[in-house]
Amino acid sequence: MIGLWDTTGNEVVKALAAERRSAGGVASGMALTLIVVVDEAHVREAEAAVTIASAAHPCRMVVVVRSDIERDRNRLDAEIVVGGRLGPGEAVVTRMFGRLALHAESVVMPLLVPDVPVVTWWHSAPPSEIANDFLGVVADRRITDSAQAPDPVEALRQRARDYAPGDTDLAWTRITPWRTLVAGAFDTTEGNQVTSATVVAPHTDPTAALMIGWLKARLGLNPQWQHTSEFPRMRSVELRCANGDEMVLSREDSQATFRRTGQADRKLPLVRRPLGDELAEELRRLDPDQIYADALGAAAGISDLDSRPSQRVHIWKDPSKQPSSAAAQGVATA
Score class of each variant (00 low, 15 high):
Leu221Pro: 05
Ile2Met: 13
Ala217Gly: 09
Val38Ser: 00
Met30Ile: 15
Gly184Lys: 08
Glu90Ile: 02
Leu249Glu: 02
Met211Gly: 04
Gly191Met: 09
Gly166Arg: 03
Asn243His: 14
Ser124Leu: 05
Ala48Ser: 10
Cys241Pro: 10
Phe186Ala: 05
Asp162Tyr: 04
Cys59Leu: 04
Glu70His: 01
Val37Asp: 02
Glu90Met: 03
Trp225Phe: 09
His57Lys: 02
Gly83Leu: 11
Val43Pro: 05
Arg235Trp: 13
His123Arg: 02
Leu16Ser: 06
Ala256Trp: 00
Ala280Asp: 00
Pro323Gly: 14
Gly262Cys: 07
Val271Phe: 04
Ala280Glu: 01
His203Met: 11
Val62Pro: 03
Asp294Thr: 10
Arg60Trp: 04
Ala300Lys: 04
Gly9His: 02
Ala201Ser: 13
Gly24Phe: 02
Leu219Cys: 15
Arg260Ala: 12
Thr228Asn: 13
Val271Met: 10
Pro206Ile: 08
Ser303Asn: 14
Ala209Ile: 07
Val37Gln: 01
Glu90Ser: 06
Pro269Asn: 10
Asp169Phe: 05
Ser303Lys: 15
Trp121Thr: 06
His103Thr: 12
Pro274Gly: 02
Glu45Met: 15
Gln255Gly: 09
Arg233Thr: 14
Glu230Cys: 05
Ser307Lys: 10
Ala264Gly: 11
His227Leu: 15
Leu296Lys: 05
Leu283Glu: 02
Glu105Ser: 08
Thr7Leu: 09
Lys317Ala: 11
Ala183Leu: 11
Gln193Glu: 14
Pro309Gln: 13
Ile143Met: 08
Ala139Phe: 03
Glu40Val: 03
Leu76Trp: 00
Thr144Glu: 09
Asn243Phe: 13
Phe97Gln: 00
Pro117Thr: 09
Ile69Trp: 00
Asp265Asn: 12
Arg218Met: 15
Gly184Pro: 09
Glu19Val: 07
Val93Leu: 08
Asp6Gly: 08
Thr204Asn: 12
Pro165Trp: 06
Arg142Leu: 10
Lys14Gly: 12
Arg266Phe: 14
Ser310Asp: 10
Val119Lys: 02
Asn10Met: 12
Leu210Thr: 08
Pro202Leu: 09
Ala171Phe: 05
Thr7Glu: 08
Arg21Ser: 15
Ile143Cys: 03
Ala185Lys: 00
Leu275Trp: 04
Gln158Thr: 12
Arg71Gly: 00
Arg273Gly: 00
Val153Asp: 01
His57Ile: 01
Leu4Lys: 10
His203Thr: 10
Thr51Ser: 11
Ala46Lys: 01
Trp121Cys: 04
Lys14Tyr: 11
Ala197Ser: 12
Asp277Gly: 02
Met211Ser: 06
His57Cys: 11
Leu275Tyr: 07
Glu281Asp: 06
Gly276Gln: 02
Arg312Glu: 15
Ala139Asp: 06
Ala299Gly: 14
Gln148Ile: 15
Arg161Asp: 10
Gly191His: 12
